[in-house]
Design a protein around this nucleic acid. Structure first.
Length: 424
RNA sequence: GCGGGCGUCGCCAAGUGGUUAAGGCAGCGGCUUGUGGCGCCGCUAUUCGGGGGUUCGAAUCCCCUCGCUCGCCCCA
């Protein structure tokens, strides 16, 4: 055993698990293609400033969870903790909005320096969608429905869509001021965490898990009283659109979300089967981010799904493993060459073929062929080579242990063999 | 960042201070030199995540460190 190990929270995805990932990714791609989205890929390292400005200096993500380092030129760099800021930067930098609104998706690793636990790693993977430059409430509903339909299609059932509106920045600022005053008057009754947050990020206190604070907050001013008419109308309309789409949701007025750039629509999709990290998808509207990063005014909305959590929920449902169609057994030098040729020819015909490399006895090779769960074996030995023939034999045939199906083909008649293989 | 549990072969594990570290699965070889799924036989950890210490003696006790896991904070 080597003493080289993975870094904490950085996990390997081993071959046995990858099938599930590929399946999920291919289903996602289908959904995105149908919705007419385009993929964007951005670097996993950015200037630190992008995140501190984009996500917000006072958020937990920026304050204590980023992987920062100085490169050899002394620039402060950060491994991206999320995807939206990078996508926004890229859009601004390349002027993509000159071509009209952007409807994009992305995927890739994200990094957050946190203590790992179930459903949380330091390197994890997100797949996300961003609609940039679209203000219409329709886009809110559409973006949510893309996530919802995708998760349904993966086979996830007991999911909850939690929905809230954060109002416009002005709405929130007014509310923040009132809330702060109200909280300061009751400073001694708050838990320690919340006391620290009053000036830094009072909204997050609403989300407190501390019981006495929770109780106290029942009396607190409510954001809904500060919502502008526009924000209210927008939220009501979104609800109506979701009702029409038959997407069930639960209003959660405590849902604040940890990134500063959100405004108006905020949502999470949660599951009870994830342990304490219940959120599988999180997103919301970020109307100010693009201009904050030096771009034009471009109202936007998006979400991100945590792949690891999604895979955990999906479990074996998505697996349906693919076994080889054919296992090629051979013995002798000439047979070996022929076996390799046949293998490649069959693969060109779109068949999944496994070739034995062991050089051991036929008996052993047959055992391995069985283990591979292939449907057919092709046997090439000295006899076959001298007669220019191929023997094809049915595997995994439990019923007839005596007369198992066998076919002999001429070496020059591969097409016929392929036809037989495709028969069933 | 804080607090619990854990770490013995590729996997699942027994062993809790006395000397050869059970067992099962998988793997490899044989019974069966060209024919399979069963069965039987054999092989596979100089070593117990890593380092240091206590001891005549440590996988077993102590310290440090790395990793995993669960909870808090927060998020995907």
């Amino acid at each position: 055993m080597t003493n080289l190990k993975n870094l904490r929270g950085m996990i390997d995805l081993l071959p046995a698990q990858i099938k599930g990932w590929q399946k999920v990714e291919s289903i996602a791609l289908e959904h995105f293609n149908r919705a007419g989205l385009q993929e964007i890929r951005t670097p996993i390292i950015e200037q630190t400033e992008l995140f501190s400005r984009g996500i917000g200096e006072n958020t937990d993500v920026v304050g204590k969870e980023m992987y920062n380092f100085d490169d050899r030129g002394g620039r402060s760099c950060t491994l991206r903790p999320e995807g939206t800021a990078s996508v926004a930067r890229s859009i601004v930098q390349h002027g993509l909005l000159n071509n009209g609104p952007q409807r994009l998706w992305y995927r890739g690793p994200m990094f957050r320096y946190e203590r790992p636990q179930a459903g949380r790693q330091r390197q994890f993977h997100q797949i996300g969608v961003e609609f940039v430059g679209i203000a219409s409430v329709m886009s809110d509903a559409e973006v949510i429905s893309i996530a919802w339909d995708f998760l349904k299609d993966i086979g996830l059932n007991d999911l909850t869509l939690e929905l809230n509106t954060l109002g416009s920045n002005e709405d929130r600022n007014g509310f923040k001021k009132d809330l702060k005053d109200w909280l300061n008057k009751r400073f001694d009754m708050l838990d320690e965490d919340s006391q620290k947050r009053i000036d830094v990020n009072p909204l997050r206190i609403l989300d407190s898990k501390n019981n006495s604070t929770k109780e106290l907050l029942c009396e607190a001013p409510s954001l809904s009283d500060f919502l502008s008419k526009e924000s209210k109308t927008r939220f009501d309309y979104l609800r109506k659109l979701l009702d029409n789409l038959k997407i069930p949701y639960k209003i959660n007025s405590k849902l604040v979300r940890g990134l500063d750039y959100y405004s108006d629509t905020a949502f999470e999709i949660t599951s009870e089967h994830l342990g304490s990290q219940a959120t599988v998808c999180g997103g919301g509207r970020y109307d100010g981010l693009i201009s904050e990063l030096g771009g034009p005014k471009a109202p936007s909305i998006g979400w991100a799904i945590g792949m690891e959590r999604l895979i955990m929920l999906a479990g074996d449902k998505i697996l349906n493993l693919k076994y080889p169609d054919v296992y090629v057994i051979h013995r002798g030098e000439k047979a070996e060459q022929l076996a390799l040729n046949i293998t490649c020819q069959l693969r060109s015909a779109n068949l999944a073929v496994e070739l034995d490399y062991s050089g051991s006895s036929f008996s052993k090779q047959f055992k391995r062929a069985d283990k591979s769960r292939a449907k057919w074996a092709i046997v090439i030995g000295e006899d076959e080579v001298s007669r220019d023939q191929l023997l094809m034999k049915k595997l995994r045939d439990n019923e007839n242990s005596e007369g198992r199906e066998e076919y002999i083909f001429s070496r020059n008649d591969i097409d016929q063999l392929i036809r037989k293989l495709n028969d069933k």
